[in-house]
Design a binder for these strands. Structure first.
Length: 421
RNA sequence: GUGGGUGUAGCUCAAAUGGUCAGAGUGCCGGGUUGUGGCCCCGGAGGUUGAGGGUUCAAGUCCCUUCACUCACCCCA
């Protein structure tokens, strides 16, 4: 019979890797909490409408990437493709905005998108997500970016670049969209097939296109930056100068157009050249209309999402973590000895010692070999011979020296020996 | 959804033009030491060469189909 394998694009995280995961999570929790962010844990399943309204009906995510199903024939549910909509849903559902004017939340967990898997892209992937709600101050933008860059630094990430842009607000972006549409109208024939399609859906995306022809055409286009309203222009200026105060290097990328509909004003990405074509490690931005779109009051917000797997792929931790070595290995010869080993081994575990034992009746040589391979500090040798004499052999695996310990003193002896280290 | 690449032992990989080609290294288990690890030596287990079909006297090797993995496009973390 064939074994059942994991679903395409869904990965197991094996014991060799979980230590790296915990390391990154712990750094995130430590850094974020110092900036006043508190952890929130959310369900992975939400009502489909949450994402339709939050992310935007015409985005690729909602149109073709969501895992959606009809639950018991009466309600559409979706495995979350991103966290922000869920965070805001919980924020509104529990009236967190009434409890305090400013709310800072972060969450770590799996997201689901039904795309074709490739390097750095999976159907289940993980994000570290932070959201700052209730501030439209540009210093809040700078603060959350500062926190992000500090986190990346603390986790050991090198050679990344921070790209910034402003997408304008509801008063200046629509106007620019018209300008671009007009600009591209006569040049349609020169665009790639994808961009011809984009012309109708999201003309700003042509800025992002990798094809040379499109880049050539768009080079002469007007920039969004020149069409920002006074408020947006001033906001962006304050964000960049605050970043400069903390010496955070950034580049302004006027072509950066993010794929989720809800972004306004400041958007940012952290990118790298070492991830193949999935170069974005972090994506984020301001969303001043989203809370309202989801039925809440007029509350501004800004947040980011770190791609966990992409971040891990960039960290220089080549060797996989091996299993932690036991404090002591119990080698036993004879059935009586194995019974004693079982008892001692588990008693010590209950007292906080990591002990291992051999269950099967292997030769002492092979048990010693195993103890050596496990890299444990001590090996206790107990055979029926020792039990008769009420004493056992304790071998220090580092030095190779061995001593005889009375069974009556054994427990205390071991506890002292191992607790002292 | 579209295109390319790859599928041989747990892992990393060999097997010219189809003809002892089913192997090596590593890992695992055991022995060399009648009760003592690491080094060394020896041995063993483990594969219907992803699956199915076809061509042929003969197929990991050629053809078709299918599945899986992978990279890229689209898009994004």
């Amino acid at each position: 019979m064939e074994i059942i394998t994991a679903v395409k694009g869904f990965k197991d995280i094996l014991p060799e890797e979980t230590e790296k995961w915990r390391f990154v999570e712990n750094v995130a929790r430590e850094v974020f909490s110092r900036f006043g962010f508190r952890e929130i844990r959310l369900p992975v399943l939400e009502k489909t409408d949450l994402f339709k309204r939050g992310i935007g009906e015409s985005t690729d995510i909602v149109e073709k990437e969501m895992y959606t199903f009809l639950d018991r024939g009466d309600e559409y549910l979706t495995l979350r493709p991103e966290a922000t909509a869920s965070v805001i849903r919980a924020y509104l559902e529990h009236s967190l905005h009434n409890a305090q004017a400013v709310t800072r939340l972060f969450t770590i967990g799996p997201m689901f998108r039904r795309e074709r898997p490739q390097k750095g892209r999976f159907r289940q992937f993980h994000q570290i997500d932070a959201e700052l709600l209730g501030l439209d101050d540009p210093r809040a933008d700078a603060e959350i970016i500062l926190m992000l860059m500090h986190f990346l630094d603390r986790v050991g990430l090198k050679k990344v670049s921070l790209e910034l842009n402003s997408l304008g607000c509801s008063s200046c972006r629509p106007a620019f969209r018209n300008v671009i549409t007009e600009f591209l109208q006569g040049k349609e024939a020169g665009l790639c097939d994808d961009c011809k399609r984009r012309l109708g859906t999201n003309p700003l995306r042509v800025f992002d296109c990798k094809s040379k022809e499109c880049q050539e055409i768009i080079r002469g286009a007007p920039h969004l930056g020149d069409f920002l309203c006074g408020d947006c222009r001033e906001h962006f200026g304050k964000v960049t100068s605050a970043l400069e105060e903390f010496a955070i290097p950034y580049t302004v990328n006027p072509g950066m157009v993010r794929g989720l509909d809800y972004y306004t004003k400041t958007t940012f990405e952290v990118t790298t050249e070492h991830l193949g074509s999935q170069n974005a490690v972090v994506g984020g931005g301001r969303y001043d209309r989203l809370v309202q779109e989801l039925g809440g009051p007029d509350i501004p917000g800004i947040g980011f999402a770190v791609g966990f797997e992409r971040l891990l792929a960039l960290l220089e931790v080549p060797e996989s973590a091996s299993a932690p070595p036991p404090d002591i290995f119990l080698a036993s010869l004879g059935e009586q000895a194995r019974n004693l080993a079982f008892t001692l081994c588990n008693q010590w575990r209950l007292k906080g010692i990591y002990a291992e034992q051999e269950f099967s009746s292997k030769s002492l040589k092979s048990q010693m070999k195993k103890a050596g391979r496990l890299n444990c500090s001590y090996t206790l040798i107990l055979g029926d011979r020792e039990i008769e004499e009420r004493k056992v052999e304790l071998r220090d695996m580092k030095t190779g020296t061995q001593q005889t310990v009375s069974l009556d003193d054994l427990d205390q002896h071991i506890l002292n020996l191992i607790k002292e280290r």
